[in-house]
């Protein structure tokens, strides 16, 4: 039975052979056209993802620093919820109906997802635009979005192993009594998580594209990240907002990054409801992808790079 490694080695050999004969001026355009349909492109994406993982591991201190940063950032929420429960006997405010356990479990999963998908693609795209390196990116035999998504997948895997799982263990150690997940619901959670992953990429990439138009997008990135945190249910589950606000937020796609996947784990639902939720999430992701393609095409038409 062929292994994944052997499969990619075979694909790679094909890529190298064709690359040697066809990558002349203009070939990259042709390569872009066949994009995700070709095995060469698949291999190129695999190599980009692999390189991203290796880059991460080149700096072990960075991994430790990044890992430590996240729990410190979100511990406040846990202690605040626990303190309110300890003082009032129950959670108050809009969360009166929610149990401490449900809130702690919600925040645990939300922040674990955040550690995987919060990769700063927007900043990376902006850096390429600002430095002019986007010119080099555009001559790669891989579409710009494809290149960044391949990196996103590679880094996502690395983050799952080096941040997500250890963070989960840490949270279990600290709040294990309060974290309750039904393993059977993981079957539905996984496809929702895949959609969350892709949607998070599309949103970060979209913000990165803003730099083609404004050059500097640091504050735009930060502001939009705040909006996403608010509208995706990362900080407050959407069900705890006032009904009117919740209604508005549920009409937006961001809920599919954190709120929906976590609800799948926490709340019982019928298969048809789960399937329709999945379909809507996928449709939103596709719409974002198509919008990004359109905006990128528009950006590249008007973008000027001053070579030196």
């Amino acid at each position: 039975m062929p292994t994944v490694r052997a499969f990619f080695a075979k694909v790679g050999a094909g890529f190298a052979k064709e690359n040697a004969t066809t990558l002349e001026p203009g070939a990259s355009a042709r390569f872009n056209r066949i994009g995700g349909r070709s095995r060469q492109a698949l291999f190129a994406r695999y190599m980009v993802g692999r390189t991203a993982i290796k880059e991460t591991l080149c700096y072990p201190a960075d991994v430790v620093i990044e890992f430590v940063s996240y729990p410190l950032a979100f511990m406040g929420y846990f202690f605040f919820v626990l303190a309110m429960a300890a003082h009032g006997g129950a959670i108050g405010g809009d969360a009166a109906g929610a149990s401490v356990s449900a809130l702690i479990t919600y925040f645990s999963i939300a922040w674990m997802l955040r550690m995987i998908v919060d990769q700063g693609v927007d900043g990376d795209v902006a850096a390429e635009v600002q430095s002019g390196d986007v010119a080099l990116a555009l001559v790669r035999p891989l579409p710009l979005a494809g290149f960044f998504f391949a990196r996103f997948v590679g880094l996502g895997l690395a983050r799952l192993v080096y941040y997500g799982v250890p963070a989960w263990l840490l949270l279990m150690l600290l709040f294990g009594d309060e974290i309750r997940v039904e393993p059977a619901r993981l079957i539905w959670f996984l496809p929702y998580a895949v959609i969350a992953f892709r949607m998070a990429f599309e949103i970060q990439f979209a913000i990165g594209l803003v730099s083609f138009f404004t050059f500097v997008n640091q504050q735009v990135s930060w502001s939009f990240d705040m909006l996403v945190r608010l509208a995706s249910g990362l900080i407050v589950p959407l069900s705890l907002f006032p009904p009117v606000v919740a209604l508005w937020l549920e009409a937006l796609p961001f809920q599919y990054i954190y709120y929906r996947p976590i609800q799948v784990l926490l709340e019982p639902a019928t298969p048809s409801a789960l399937l329709s939720g999945l379909a809507i999430g996928a449709a939103w992701t596709l719409a974002l992808h198509l919008a990004n393609r359109g905006v990128l095409a528009l950006a590249l038409r008007r973008h000027v790079i001053y070579g030196s």
């Binding site: 929420y77 605040f80 919820v81 309110m84 009032g88 129950a90 959670i91 108050g92 405010g93 809009d94 969360a95 009166a96 809130l103 608010l230 900080i235 407050v236 705890l240 907002f241």
Partner: peptide
């Protein structure tokens, strides 16, 4: 929103 949601 977070503090208001949680604090009685």
């Amino acid at each position: 929103a977070f503090i208001g949601a949680v604090m009685m």
